[in-house]
Write a protein that binds this DNA or RNA. Structure first.
Length: 948
RNA sequence: GCGGGGGUGGUCGAGUGGUCAAAGGCGCUAGGUUGAGGGCCUAGUGGGUUAGUCCCUUCGCGGGUUCAAGUCCCGUCCCCCGCACCA
């Protein structure tokens, strides 16, 4: 209720609508959402961080722009709409029960545009409910006609700079959907990589057995060809060559090689027993049967290299022992000549490494599951440490990894080989149920992130940026180097068409790399005619290039251009960490290519993820709490406070109901605090006119010192987005101190003590402002109720009064607390009823000694004693030595802040102390009365105690 | 494999080479307040010992540098994240 009230007031007053003025500006953006589902508390954190920062900086006098828009381009909603249309049960369930779309709205989601419209307006609503200080006049969607013109401009600009070029690339592809598929589109096979295989051609009559391998260098050790008699082989026409492969392999290969036409079926039994020519070595090798060969991997035809391939080794062994099979195919005469030919040497292995590893893992047949493991292990070992044996001409002694590449080149150039792609593992199944293939996309457009000069420039962008947290900077550097050409055109989805090649849509990450610059001018473009937003228009606005093609009036252009120049560059970019390797890096790339240096981004903050009671949050698994529900259950301020307090932005936060409730109680305590102060005061509290009071009590000074410490620490933390640390200081630790203060002055609370009232009033006044960025609604309400001027949201951020921060005062209170604790402890041990407590303060010479030790700075006892004796601080040299030794042990534990008047301090708190320990207290500054010789125990900050 | 980040008490997590047996939250225990167990306040939460002390153990494991190391160096084990055609 109060939240709605203040949101309305802010909107009515246009408090967060930011226009250029003469204040210092601050432009902060957060990655806009792709609204394909409801907003959950994870999103809540993402958008609360910039809001808190924006509010903080606004209170510090900055002109802050915090805008929001909707990323609706891309393919996911197309798939969602399809599944809704198909009445896919899982999808319907997800949208009805997790995203909580009302039943009558559900069928409308068959339209992808409706999906993004529906959820972006829901996002908008929830963001309002959260009280975000967004300038909504700049809201847009990435399919708005005006925005599309902007995308056309940027993509054309990059194209003209030669940074977008045509190429081809293998992709995971679903033949049924006729579209590339990402990992998230898969039913099975998530994370499976695509391998490049070498297709080696073995001649047999007028046909070619095409064998696929990851290890072309082992061709010199080929002993035979394997065919699986149980699967279907076919003959295909590959550009005039007659290839023999499996039918399943054709399914995949036909997406990579054009016009791969099936000519005939081949019965593998007809080939087994015959010989094929190894064109590289010139030897004839037999064709043999093997059951481990699968029809869907590679070409379905395998050449055997039993020395290094465990599967080949064991298959050969199996065959030699299988008289039935040998008889069937009449292989008895030739099988004896088929023996492993060594190819690689590898430390720790013998001449036939495959044999060693098979024996080591106790593999007994070619259908053993461990075969995969054996193959992987040997493959890795040989790749990193193996060498080709010396007898191989041209390649002997070379590293396996080197020989592999070189030999492959040679084979391809001699047309003995070609390349193909296949999944590292199968199956890979699309959500539609179809078996995926690797397709080579030609005609595809690429963003040339491989361009070295571009990379160079992008590194420069990064160098000049502040990255939070700092460790991520290494990550960025790595990604900038690692990024290869990025396919930037698509066939399916919502989006803008490539201006020069209309069959393609612009890929959705590509259209969102410099859109922050669009925010700066969005409020003007909204109502303009898209036809006026031609290339010349944007060239003028963004790059100040003149042209006759501009159709917009100069004074209008000027205003727009000025606004852009006022807000740009972007001061802070915030985003979740999963975008580091793409979006955030692209942002740097594109800024470096399009804008001059003074418009490059200045800072990036990367967020962690959200957990729910210790488990990963995920909409698709239903493990989420919707933000709107959280607001309803706890209020926006509690949600905001919890999200900001439970972890720093870049750490993963964990939504635990118990702790959320704790946060709620904490906020209620705060809400009630002003009221409590008013009661103590006994009259109404007016924050706008607090009468200044000269304070003398240590405890009052202590409270103000602590308050200023917390303000200082909190401000410093917020400056670098440490919301948790800021709240730790401004909420938890401050409250702890206030609790202590109230406890300390408890005896004064009903006496209308003006010192106490003053201190408490200052706390209320400061505290409301300190928490205003985090819990703006609550703070506005309190601010208004207790006479604050204007909005709390636009009040000045509390300034630190350094003169009130007093380490000696803080030390004094620490002394009192320790004293009480010590007395209590001694009392407990003595057991007897104590009547009187004598306290002895440290004599001056001990302070002198401390001063000396402090100057020396380290516990060098010899030096301390030496100087002390020389300075003649005390007659009793032996006692100097004793105390110095003790001091040496303690000085690193005690923060020395200078001499304090202990007697004065203790007397000031005498009433409190005696009440606490329930005893009469007598303070001695000398040992004139010291029946048990305790006074000598007194040390600075640690008076001696005698209990009677 | 490559790259990045980590391993601190029952748990989540602070922690600049000395002020750290280790903030704060949560949990647990005790006391106070109250309309008993809710909330709030106070105290405790590795072990031993004691007139407020001191000792031992301890920051994944093993070494090293230093008067002094959770913090720096070397080695080692383990865990998490990213590796792309996509938000």
């Amino acid at each position: 209720m109060i939240e709605k009230k203040w949101q309305k007031k802010w909107a009515d007053e246009k408090l967060f609508e930011s226009n250029p003025n003469d204040k210092e500006k601050l432009f902060i953006t957060v990655a806009f959402p792709y609204p394909s589902g409801a907003m959950h508390i994870g999103h809540g954190r993402t958008y609360t961080v910039p809001d808190v920062y924006a509010r903080f900086k606004r209170m510090n006098g900055y002109n802050v722009l915090f805008p929001m828009a909707w990323h609706v381009t891309g393919a996911p909603v197309i798939g969602i709409a399809d599944r809704i249309k198909r009445k896919d049960k899982w999808t319907l369930d997800l949208y009805e029960n997790v995203h909580r779309v009302p039943k009558d709205e559900l069928p409308k989601l068959e339209d992808p545009e409706y999906i993004v419209r529906y959820f972006s307006s829901e996002y908008n609503e929830v963001m309002h409910d959260m009280g975000y200080s967004i300038d909504w006049r700049r809201e847009f969607r990435t399919i708005d006609p005006t925005y599309k013109k902007f995308v056309e401009w940027q993509i054309t600009t990059l194209h003209e700079k030669g940074l977008i070029q045509k190429g081809e690339h293998p992709v995971k592809y679903c033949p049924n959907c006729d579209n590339p598929v990402g990992d998230h589109d898969l039913l099975e096979g998530e994370g499976v990589g695509v391998n490049e295989l070498t297709l080696l051609k073995f001649k047999i009559d007028d046909k070619i057995l095409v064998t696929a391998t990851l290890r072309p260098e082992t061709i010199v050790g080929a002993t035979n060809i394997w065919l699986n008699p149980d699967i279907e082989y076919i003959e295909v026409d590959a550009d005039g060559e007659n290839w023999i492969i499996t039918r399943e392999a054709h399914h995949n290969l036909s997406n990579q090689i054009k016009d791969l036409e099936i000519k005939d079926e081949i019965n593998p039994d007809d080939l087994i027993g015959k010989f094929a020519l190894n064109q590289f070595t010139g030897t004839e090798i037999p064709i043999l049967p093997a059951s481990f060969v699968s029809g869907d991997y590679g070409s379905g035809v395998v050449f055997s290299e039993p020395a290094d391939a465990p599967a080949d080794f064991i298959a050969l062994k199996d065959l030699k022992n299988n008289t039935e099979l040998l008889d069937k195919y009449g292989l008895n005469d030739i099988i004896g000549d088929v023996n492993p030919i060594p190819v690689c040497t590898l430390k720790g292995y013998g001449e036939i490494p495959a044999k060693d590893i098979i024996e080591c893992l106790e593999i007994t047949s070619q259908n053993d599951d461990k075969l995969h493991e054996a193959t992987n292990e040997l493959y890795k070992a040989q790749h990193s440490k193996g060498k080709i044996i010396d007898t191989v001409e041209g390649y002997g002694g070379k590293k396996v990894s080197v020989a592999r590449e070189e030999l492959k080149e040679e084979l391809i150039s001699k047309n003995i080989a070609t390349t193909m792609y296949d999944f590292a593992e199968r199956p890979v199944i699309c959500r539609c149920g179809e078996n995926c293939v690797v397709k080579i996309m030609d005609d595809q457009w690429f963003m040339k992130y491989s361009n070295p000069e571009w990379k160079e420039k992008t590194h420069e962008v990064l160098e000049n940026e502040t990255i939070i947290p700092g460790e991520i900077k290494n990550n960025f550097n790595y990604y900038i180097d690692w990024l290869d050409d990025w396919a930037c055109s698509r066939k399916v989805g919502l989006g803008t068409k490539l201006p020069w090649d209309n069959q393609w849509l612009i890929e959705p990450l590509t259209d969102s790399t410099i859109y922050m610059s669009y925010y700066s001018i969005a409020r003007f473009l909204k109502d303009m005619n898209p036809d006026d937003l031609n290339l010349a228009f944007f060239n003028k606005v963004y790059l100040n290039e003149d042209s006759d093609d501009i159709t917009v009036a100069p004074e209008v252009i000027k205003e727009i251009q000025d606004e852009f120049n006022y807000w740009y560059p972007l001061d802070w970019r915030l985003s979740a960490k999963d975008l580091v390797g793409n979006h955030l890096s692209f942002l740097m790339f594109h800024h470096s290519a399009i804008f001059p240096k003074d418009k490059w981004p200045r800072g990036t903050v990367v967020f962690g993820m959200g957990l729910l009671e210790g488990n990963k949050m995920s909409s698709s698994k239903g493990n989420v709490i919707l933000l709107k529900d959280a607001i309803k259950d706890y209020s926006a301020d509690v949600v905001r406070l919890f999200l900001m307090a439970s972890a720093e932005p870049w750490q993963d936060f964990d939504w635990r109901e118990k702790e959320v409730l704790g946060t709620k109680r904490r906020l209620e305590w705060f809400k009630d605090f002003a009221n409590k102060v008013e009661q103590i005061k006994g009259s109404s509290l007016d924050l706008n006119s607090i009468d200044k009071v000269e304070l003398t009590r240590t405890i009052d000074l202590w409270m103000l010192s602590q308050l200023n410490q917390h303000v200082k620490a909190s401000s410093e933390a917020l400056e670098v987005f440490q919301t948790r640390k800021a709240l730790q200081e401004s909420l938890f630790l401050l409250k702890k101190d206030i609790d202590h203060y109230l406890y300390r002055v408890n005896h004064l609370l009903d006496k209308k003590d003006e010192g106490v009232i003053y201190v408490l009033s200052i706390i209320v006044e400061t505290w409301i402002r300190l928490l205003s960025p985090f819990t703006p609604h609550t703070c506005e309400e309190l601010w208004a109720e207790y006479g604050g001027e204007g909005f709390a949201s636009s009040a000045q951020w509390p300034q630190v009064d350094e003169s009130l921060i007093n380490p000696k005062i803080e030390k004094s209170e620490e002394l009192i607390q320790n004293l009480i604790k010590d007395i209590e402890q001694i009392k407990k041990m003595v057991g007897d009823e104590a009547e009187k407590v004598h306290i002895y303060t440290a004599p001056d010479w001990k302070w002198d000694l401390y001063e000396i030790a402090n100057e020396i700075g380290k516990p060098d006892i010899g030096q301390i004693i030496g100087r002390a004796v020389k300075a003649d601080i005390c007659d009793d040299k032996k006692e100097i030595a004793n105390v110095a030794k003790k001091l040496g042990r303690e000085m690193t534990k005690t923060k020395y802040v200078g001499k304090i008047d202990e007697a004065d301090i203790i007397n000031d708190a005498l009433e409190y102390i005696s009440k606490e320990i329930d005893c009469e207290v007598i303070v001695h500054e000398d040992d004139s009365y010291d029946p048990q010789n305790k006074a000598r125990n007194a040390m600075p900050y640690k008076p001696a105690i005698l209990i009677q």
